[in-house]
Structure formats: C-alpha cells, structure tokens
C-alpha cells in the first residue's frame, strides 16, 4: 500500500472541517481498510460523535445511528415484527405462516438496517457504555461476523460491510470481548495548536489574538479541578457568544466575559469554582 494513506485521510477530513490527529487518522484508516469496528473513548465533548459524521461525509455514505441507553433491547436495536400488519394480513387475505414472517412484516431497527444496505453505510453506535451488558453480548455476533439471526427467517448476512464506529465515555467498563474485536483510539482534549485549528475551521471569524485568548482560557480551565471540564463544543459556543457580543479582548470587558461563562461551566459547583478572581488570574496569564 502507498505510504502515508492515513495522512491523506487526515487531510481529506480536514477539508470537511474535522481536525484529526495522527493516531485517530491511522485508526480510521485501519478501520476502513481492514473492515473492523473502531472504538473511540475519551472525555465528553472532544468530538467522538463528530468523527462518524465527518467520516460519513468523506465517504459519501449514509449514517445510521444507534443511540444507546439503559434498557435498550433487541426489539429496538435490531428488529421487530410488525404485529398490526400481520394481524390485518391474516384477516384480509388469510396469509400463510411463511408470508407472515417475511420481509414485508419486518420492522428494521438500526443494526439490521445497517447490514442490509446496498452501499456500505457508516454505523455509529453512540455511548455503548450506557447500554447494559446483555446488549453488548448481542453486539458481539454482529460486530465479528456482520450477520444477524432471526429465528423465524434465518441468518441474514451483511450485503455490504458497514463501517462501524462505537463511542464510549466511561459510564461503565466495557467487556474485554468487545474491546478485543475493535480497533481502539483514545481522543483526549486537543493541544493548543489543534484547538486553534479547530476554532479557525468551525468557529466564527475572530481576530488571531482573541482566538489565542479563548483557547488559552479554555485550556487553563481544563487544568482546574472541575466537575465537567469544558469540551470543544463548549469552546465553540463560547467563542460564538463572545463574537456575538462584539468582544475583541477578554481583558477589556471582564463583566461580559464572566457572564458568558455559562457557555463553558455547566454546573453550579463549577460556577463557584471559577469566581471573578480566578478568571482574572487566568485571563491575566493568557492576555
């Protein structure tokens, strides 16, 4: 294979507006070329879900998303029979059993839908750690063989292998079996340079000095002992708020800056942890 294919992927994603680091680009490249699922972990708000969206756009594929939650079961993730239509069919045309359990009466849920597509879609299984262990076990068959067994019909094998991306942020520890089947990448909070690049691509038009200040403050806040550290989405919200207020220098209009902190700090305890004095210190350092 040619050299630096993951670099090419990284640049392609960059053109779409997603700034990936080398290890993430490599993981995505391998997921695409080996056809293995990719597990992304990292703190909330570093753009795990966004990876899947960017990749979808890059591939020109369809995104099928399964949001996990506690109590998610097979009938909501894989398939369910359309009972009403079956009943009607029995009454109306005395349908036989084979006819009743056929494609017509099958409600496809995300996982089944993903493996019955013509063109390979991107399947995003979001926050897999929220689903319970039983569901994780279901997933194993699908992720390793890309097939689903429906007792009444038989085994359905994938017509096109979806690109599977799983995300988790540590609500619960995942099983070793699942981890072994996946490639893995840990996405951490971005470095200063990366974050500046993200702000330049995704944020409003800002002066270079203000952009540096914003990123500096957010990075400093992440080092503080906060309950919920501000992620990239929060940083972008904040920059949009500052741009909307027409602030050009954080050190100038301190009251407005303090008021816009609602974009960054989302709990009462965190608000208390960053009073005006602390913010003064941080802003003084970056300005």
């Amino acid at each position: 294979m040619t050299a630096g294919t993951h670099i090419a992927l990284k640049e392609a994603l960059g053109r779409i507006g997603y700034v990936a680091d080398d290890s993430l680009a490599m993981a995505l490249h391998l997921a695409l070329s080996l056809g293995r699922p990719l597990l992304l972990e990292g703190p909330a708000g570093v753009g795990k879900t966004e990876v899947a969206k960017a990749l979808t756009e890059h591939l020109g594929a369809r995104l099928i998303r399964l949001q996990c939650y506690e109590g998610l079961d097979a009938s909501h993730a894989i398939y369910e029979w359309n009972y009403q239509r079956q009943l009607l069919a029995i009454r109306a045309d005395h349908a036989s059993e084979e006819a009743l359990f056929s494609d017509r009466f099958l409600l496809k849920r995300p996982l089944l839908e993903a493996i019955t597509q013509h063109d390979p879609p991107v399947l995003l299984i979001d926050e897999i750690d929220r689903a319970d262990e039983e569901f994780e076990a279901y997933l194993l068959e699908i992720l390793s063989d890309f097939q689903i067994t429906i007792p009444e019909i038989g085994t359905i094998a994938a017509s096109a292998r979806p690109v599977v991306i799983l995300t988790a942020n540590g609500t619960r520890d995942l099983s070793d079996a699942l981890r072994r089947r996946c490639l893995y990448s840990y996405i951490d909070y971005p470095t200063r340079e990366t974050e500046l690049a993200i702000l330049a691509r995704r944020g409003p038009k800002l002066e270079a000095r203000l952009a540096r200040q914003i990123v500096g403050v957010v990075q400093a806040l992440r080092r503080e002992d906060l309950e919920k550290k501000p992620g990239i989405a929060e940083m972008l919200d904040w920059s949009a708020a500052l741009a909307g207020l027409g602030i050009n220098d954080l050190a100038e209009d301190r009251a407005a800056v303090q008021a816009t902190l609602v974009c960054l700090l989302k709990t009462a305890a965190d608000r208390d942890a960053a009073p005006a004095e602390v913010m003064d210190r941080i802003i003084g350092k970056v300005a």
Binding site: M1, T2, A3, G4, T5, H6, D22, S23, M26, A27, H29, L30, S33, L34, L38, E41, G42, G170, L174, D176, R179, R180, L183, Y184, S185, Y186
Partner: peptide, 23 residues
C-alpha cells in the same frame, strides 16, 4: 500489511490502535 510498515511512526500508530484495549 495495510500501512507502510517500513515507516516506524506509521507502524507504531497502526499497532497502537490495534492492540491497545483501553485508555
């Protein structure tokens, strides 16, 4: 086989995403 194995940096990244199971 899927990457340029003679480039140590690439090989490192590739093996990392394959082998590492957790944070």
């Amino acid at each position: 086989g899927a990457v340029n194995a003679t480039d140590p940096a690439e090989a490192r990244l590739a093996l990392k995403s394959l082998i590492v199971p957790d944070a």
